[in-house]
Design a protein around this nucleic acid. Sequence first.
DNA 1: TGGGATTTGTTCGTATGTATT
DNA 2: GAATACATACGAACAAATCCC
Lengths: 233, 233
Amino acid sequence: MRQGETSLPTDRVGAICRSLRRAIVERALTPGDRLPEDALGERFGVSRTIARQALGQLAGEGLVELRRNRIAVVASPSWEEARDTFDVRIGLERLVVQRLAGRLSAEQRAALEAHIAGEERASGGSEAASIRLATEFHLLLAEMTGSPVLGRYVAELGYRCALILSLYSRPHSADCAVSEHSEIVAALVSGDAARAVALMDHHLDAVAERARIVDEPRRERDLLRLLAPYVEG
Amino acid sequence: MRQGETSLPTDRVGAICRSLRRAIVERALTPGDRLPEDALGERFGVSRTIARQALGQLAGEGLVELRRNRIAVVASPSWEEARDTFDVRIGLERLVVQRLAGRLSAEQRAALEAHIAGEERASGGSEAASIRLATEFHLLLAEMTGSPVLGRYVAELGYRCALILSLYSRPHSADCAVSEHSEIVAALVSGDAARAVALMDHHLDAVAERARIVDEPRRERDLLRLLAPYVEG
DNA sequence: TGGGATTTGTTCGTATGTATT
DNA sequence: GAATACATACGAACAAATCCC
């Protein structure tokens, strides 16, 4: 057996999941959009079997709704589910900052500040990039706890919250103020756990606060063209 | 279309998952046990496709390890993963008791006390039943928060912790003292959130504390016979 | 080390259910 | 309301990897 060389010779299911997650976060795919197995397979160059597995996994993460004998669609959480998701997210991210306060290594601090710099740079450009980076800031924090379990749950909730905002938040609102991220990092560095928790709570509350119902008629959308920028390769 | 009548005419994948979860919690299946797709399919009367889906879902929950081109096995978390899992569980269950303190309805209180009575009744009998009921007590609490998201995560971690205890705890230790459950409920009823949190913390710490490495040579085990009591239907 | 038996990875065909004209 | 087109559910079958003697 050849050594090294990632034994998964390209995890096609995982690649599709990552592409779809990113498309959802960036709002190229929005709740209700249809995800037929063949179209996905064609777009990603795989058979229906693989597309199906990806849909199953994303359904487990709450990003996709799988109805029996029906085309899968991007999930449309109810308002209750949305509120619940945000509530639990706040609880989990509180755990994150509690673990991190006063314990950031120099490298971690640098990585966070670099990420925030990236957010600032993106804030003038496309909204898609801003939203994605804002989401990833929270995932980055969670990863730094060194707890894979916490990291996974925070990531899952982060993606779901991004989906929820694409459903309920009014258009053209910056969904995550970069300066708030900055303040959180400052509090973490200073070791003031209580302040970091308060800032994170306030930050996420503000994000959730932007969730407003805007019932916008949805035009038919072309999955294949839509997904083009998200095919890894 | 005939009305009512659960439109999922028996979710076979879900049924297999439930059976397997229960078998794992009751230690009929223990870490490292092999789960070949066709043996599962034969046992549950389904094709490999269905068995495979169930394995995929359980892998997502961390109960099964899926290695490429290899037989799936019941997961064997490392000690680090085990500790991480317990840590996050404690954090989440703290959220649960914080939400529940002073807010239990009469029905909920009755349900909890009935459950504890069941645990006491089972404490003389089979160890399997005791362990399962102890796990389910925590799931029941989480459900009562009315938060599906929190409920799902606590359930997932509860099952994983049961798995971990079957790996690391010494044999014949009661894994969950019934009286501690009782005290937690009493604190919740009294509305003393701080005390409820402290009791839950202490309780889960004590459970984790029982995790000790016991390297026991594993005999070959017959999946088909093993699983017989867990086939639903 | 080798080779046969096992087991998984994947595709694809058929049956069945859903949407649409 | 029926017929047609379309999409999914499931299982059979084949290729490739792995296991085990």
